[in-house]
Design a protein around this nucleic acid. Structure first.
Lengths: 312, 312
DNA sequence: TTGTAAGCGTTATCAC
DNA sequence: GTGATAACGCTTACAA
């Protein structure tokens, strides 16, 4: 019988069982190490489950993502993992996500929150607040009192971070100076330009907290060009801990996100839902933690060099 | 009829037509920006062709790659794109590749050469020799006479590079000092350690040519730790032009490879073969070019600072 | 030109 | 428990 190389025909099986064995992963840019790491995590899980991971790269374009959302259903994929599409929250795409989810498509979003009241939906995200607080404490204990914050597009996550920034300052009795709040897109160039705006301030900060490692590195490039010493004259903190963070000099202090696990858990969740073992929708939140490197003054150094808080 | 939302069932269609609409991409590590860029290129093409790209990450492990090679046939993918599996050429995997190809599976290899005499096979690769020669000319014109070469595992590509290194020196009447030839694995750490070995030489070189950007950056990290100025005391050149090359400081002079196009052309070739328009197997070679950045002395600088060739 | 029937390979069901 | 049969939805070939 099967002793001589028989293997079942997956198409026939798919036709009969209504299961294609395909899981789609939609990302804005595979080339971004953050999303590559998510893909890696998801791929490992699907491989072990003998499923195929279909890679969908939306090029950060709303129209392409929307197209995928529509096409994938027709392709009869068994499930979809969706990571947030670039900066701009997109109402049409959101509507499509809701539609898919309501039609019963196993669908897990990574790091994105659709309005919670409206839908129940599977979400895998990270504890942004905790990481942000840890980073702020690190800076505050380093003696900084004027800390610039570079935010990104106004997503739920971004709002959480900003709120934590504010409350961390308040908890120390410090006043939030709105002049120190900036916005940037999530690129190197964005960070570079924003840094120049920050340095134009009358009362310069002594530290910059960026929403993202790429932005933080853009900031550092600008600082280096201007001959401003990192961390002695300006400390910098990022978010994500992408590999660039430890390759750039000085190495970047950053809030690490468990990128690989984000992908892994999302895939596991999709599979659970496909196999119908999944008690309702759920939101999973993974821990973040601060990785202290060279771009910030450590407490002891700070005490030596900046007894009270570095002046501008 | 189709006016009200009908869409054909892909499984039934696949069963009938023996075409699943799936193309597999096997890479060692998606997280490596070189392979991520290839994936990006391939993905764009498959999207336009309304096909699905199945991502297979072998974790640089021979056993996993082998497993994919076997499983994908059973999954009835329409074609396979294969990028070289890490450092060690693997006879068993190579045998499987040949078997697949002979069984008529549309299969394109990126940057890897199976023994040419033995099989005809579709290959998309780059003009390593030309890029290497350009880089060597840049260094030689910069006044360098002692140039260390860090090679990787002995693949066909690596051999081409080394041969070009030798002939470039010979063309200038320079003698190849075998003490200046090193080997490293293709990682940051590999470059870091090899750099220490290079600096242990009695007669130090004034330039280092690394097989790969990650290795080159490892070299630069080691140099910086030891307080050796780049490029004044040591020039460094890499290969690939991954994004890290322009983010690291000093920015890295490197031979750019058209990574995205590698993926794009490979996908186009697979599709051509699937559609039976493909006149025999072919080898496509894409151009490479030198990107001069901060890690090497430019000609004019070199003349000022190193009239003849920097002494050790 | 339009319509009907058979078959792709699996799985599930039903009768034995 | 074992073995035949129907049905999944499409495609294509052939007949009307």
């Amino acid at each position: 019988m099967s002793s001589l190389g028989y293997s079942p025909n997956p198409s026939a099986r798919a036709l009969r069982s209504n299961k294609t064995g395909l899981i789609a992963l939609i990302v804005p840019e595979v080339v971004n190490p953050y999303f590559a790491a998510i893909a890696h995590g998801a791929q490992t899980v699907t491989r072990n489950a003998k499923l195929a991971l279909v890679l969908c790269n939306s090029e950060s374009e709303e129209s392409i993502e929307l197209d995928y959302l529509q096409t994938l259903e027709r392709k009869h994929v068994d499930g979809v993992i969706l990571t947030p599409p670039g900066p701009h929250p997109n109402p049409r795409a959101d509507a499509e996500i809701l539609r898919l989810s309501k039609r019963g498509m196993p669908l897990v979003c990574i790091g994105r929150r659709i309005r919670q009241d409206e839908v129940s939906m599977d979400i895998v995200t990270t504890d942004t607040g905790i990481g942000t607080r840890e980073a702020m404490r690190h800076l505050l204990e380093g003696g900084h009192t004027r800390i610039a914050y570079i935010g990104g597009p106004t997503t739920t996550i971004a709002q959480t971070r900003l709120a934590t920034y504010r409350s961390s300052l308040a908890a120390r009795g410090l006043i939030v100076d709105d002049d120190l709040l900036f916005n940037s897109d999530l690129t190197l160039e964005g960070g570079y330009q924003t840094c120049h705006r920050i340095l134009g301030l009358r009362k310069r900060p002594t530290a910059i907290f960026a929403v993202n490692d790429m932005v933080a590195i853009g900031v550092m490039i600008a600082l280096q060009e201007l001959g401003i010493a990192i961390p002695e004259e300006m400390s910098v903190v990022g978010f994500d801990d992408i590999p660039y963070a430890s390759v750039f000099r000085p190495t970047l202090t950053t809030v690490a996100q468990p990128k690989y696990d984000l992908g892994r858990l999302a895939a596991e969740r999709v599979i659970a839902r496909i196999e119908n073992r999944a008690a309702g929708h759920e939101i999973v939140s993974l821990p973040t933690h601060l990785v202290v490197r060279e771009s910030t003054l450590h407490l002891r150094q700070a005490m030596k060099q900046n007894p009270v808080g570095a002046g501008a």
